[in-house]
Structures are given as structure tokens and as C-alpha cells.
Amino acid sequence: MAERERRLTPPFGGVFVARTRVMTSDDTERAVWRMAHEILERNHGIDDVLLVGLQTGGVPLARNLADALERIEEGASVVVGTLDVAFYRDDIGLRPVLPEATTDIPYDLTGRTVVLVDDVLFTGRTIRAALDALTDFGRPRAVQLAVMVDRGHRELPIRPDYVGKNLPTRRDEVVNVGPDGVDLGEMVK
């Protein structure tokens, strides 16, 4: 059923082949460190700020950002939530959609500043869905967006607040953010 069919359906059916390494793991580590400082600078500290990683790519990045924030602000404890936006997408029915993983937002967001974290910002549709989803968990004072890679091709008026790297791409290329760094490549069937 869904899961198995999805594996057989493009673009998931193909295999990602890396063409160029655009960031090494050292580069991403430095970018995380810089973004953590920017988050602190923008919000004058970390009080009432919580990170929400988008399943699945944004979650490890959110954890890394939280680690960095806790190292910079000694004694601070940064809450990391996770959010799966499958049920809020606007392309339901246009492609196989499956919730990838769990949503876990343990706090009422009302009055807090939420930093949404994702690995790659592309059309902006995932972020639009995430903004919808957040409203079901309360009314945040502000929502900010942190991404490792902004690859362009936006289809909605959405822009990130914290960017690891701006990476011009072709539409048909695929950006893969992994523990070893960031690769630019394509799906091969």
C-alpha cells in the first residue's frame, strides 16, 4: 500500500546520486554555530524561544542548533519539538503523501517565539503547511525560520531568517543534507 507504492513512485523511486559536495561537515558545523549566535542576537537571549524541527530533515539540524545554543548560553535549556506537516500540505492528492514521523510539541506555543528548522528551503510549501500546523498548537508571539540550505525557486512569499548557505540550483537538481555535509546531485531512476 502507501509506503510500498511510494517507494516505487518518483521522485522517491530513484536513487540520489551526489554530483558536488557543496558543504563539508566542518562547514555545516560552522554554519550551525553562526546561526545559533544569530538566533541569540535576534531574540536577545533564549528565553521563551523554542525550536521546532520539521520531520524528517529538520529534526537533526534543530537538535544541533539546540546543542550550540546551550553551549553558548551556559545553563540554558532549549526545547526542541518536532512537527510533521503531511496532513497540512496543499498537494494532498497530487502525490503520495505519508506522515514521515511523529509530531511532538509538548508546550502551548502561545506567547513564545518559535524557530522553525528545516534542512532545505525550496518552494516554501512545506513551511506554509508548518505555519498552518503551528496555529493548532497555540498563538506564537513570533515565528522565525532557520534552514541549512536556501536553494531558491520559491512559490510563496516566504523567506528564511537564518540561512546556512544560499545555493543557486536548477529545479531538477536535488539537495541532500546529511551528517557528512551537503551534496548537490540528482535522482537517478
Binding site: D91, G93, L94, P96, E155
Partner: peptide, 23 residues
Amino acid sequence: LWSMLGAGTDLVAEPDEQQGAQQ
């Protein structure tokens, strides 16, 4: 209900939309 109406498994999207939707 979601598996029948929402998951979209019986639909094949335009290649362009698939790319757009992925990231």
C-alpha cells in the same frame, strides 16, 4: 479514511510538481 482519500497513492503527479513538492 486517509489511506483511501488522502494519501494520493493512486495518483501520479506531473514530474514538475513532484520535484516541487519534495523539498
